[in-house]
Computed example of a mutant assay.
Amino acid sequence: MTPNWDDMRIFLAVAREESLSSAGRILKIDPATVGRRIARLEATLDSTLFTKSQQGYVLTPAGQRLLEHGLHAEEAMRAAAGAVTGPTKTLSGQIRIGAPDGSANYLLPQVCAKISDANPDLDIQILALPRVINLSRREADMAVTVSAPTAGQLLVKKISDYKLHMVATEEYLKRHDPIRSIADLKGHRLIGYIPDMIFDRELDYLNDIGVDRVALASNSVSVQLRQVCLGTGVCVAHDFTLPFHPGLRKILTDQVCLTRSFYLVRHQGDQRNERLNRFADALTRGIRDEVLRLEAGPDA
């Protein structure tokens, strides 16, 4: 027998959330019903699609194979809906963006607020995670990344370059030995990412400048900046975060100036989705403009 779309929709939700209760919350149905529908789908296909583990519901090999076809079906349903409704003046529905927490905290809130103002019927969700967003499992409709993925069927578009510098508070610099060169950093407390939790080589800033010890570490940019603002040490910071932390001062600007890039990554199957294309264009323009504005500083 062929599974119906409603059962496939429930299957996709459980595959993404790895939980009956989380899937039910998203679908607005109770977890017991979700479980019964999954059992019905498994009976229809005569295959076990999930195994229960301590981490939740994990796809079996058969489930993995079904997931690929389910995602294609979902993309086809979205495209069909867009073809029927046609272009509209404003966007509606729900769109989820995945992003590392630097951009999620300091760029996306104001960018998404402006898009929301122009599209009052649109629900925008920002998924801030210190790891690569899994688009293949539809964790998000699109993702902002710090490197361009080379594997998978994805649409990748460069958004903007951005700068990073070393920073500290005036108070910290007055209380400690002067920092005139990179070599002087060895006498100071460095703040940065947890080394074995750096999920993208582009985030390994301190290694790039020869620092081999991180005394205070976090997988969150916001936590790192909070620690620096308390006057506890020195870190590498995005220039676009500095207007939010006026107490921080750039140091070693003639020796340390890193350039990184943001990319917008999407499902290849969405390239004809007019709604997502319009949102992606607005998001790209918004991030690019916001990086330029914040890097220019308060006097620009």
Rank of each mutant, 00 (worst) to 15 (best):
A118M: 11
A118K: 10
N119W: 14
P120A: 08
D121F: 09
D121A: 13
L122E: 10
L122Q: 06
D123A: 11
D123K: 12
I124R: 05
Q125R: 11
A128K: 08
A128Q: 04
L129I: 14
L129H: 07
P130T: 09
R131T: 10
R131P: 00
V132W: 04
V132P: 00
I133K: 00
N134V: 12
L135W: 02
L135F: 04
S136H: 14
R137N: 09
R137S: 08
R137M: 10
R138A: 15
R138K: 13
E139Q: 15
E139I: 03
E139Y: 07
A143N: 01
A143K: 01
A143D: 02
V144I: 15
S147N: 09
S147C: 11
A148D: 09
T150V: 14
A151H: 13
G152Q: 07
G152P: 09
Q153C: 05
L154W: 04
L154K: 09
L155M: 10
V156K: 09
K157D: 14
K157V: 01
K158G: 10
K158V: 06
I159T: 05
S160V: 02
S160Y: 00
D161Y: 08
K163H: 13
L164V: 02
H165V: 11
H165L: 00
M166S: 07
M166I: 12
M166N: 01
V167D: 03
V167G: 07
T169E: 05
Y172E: 05
K174N: 08
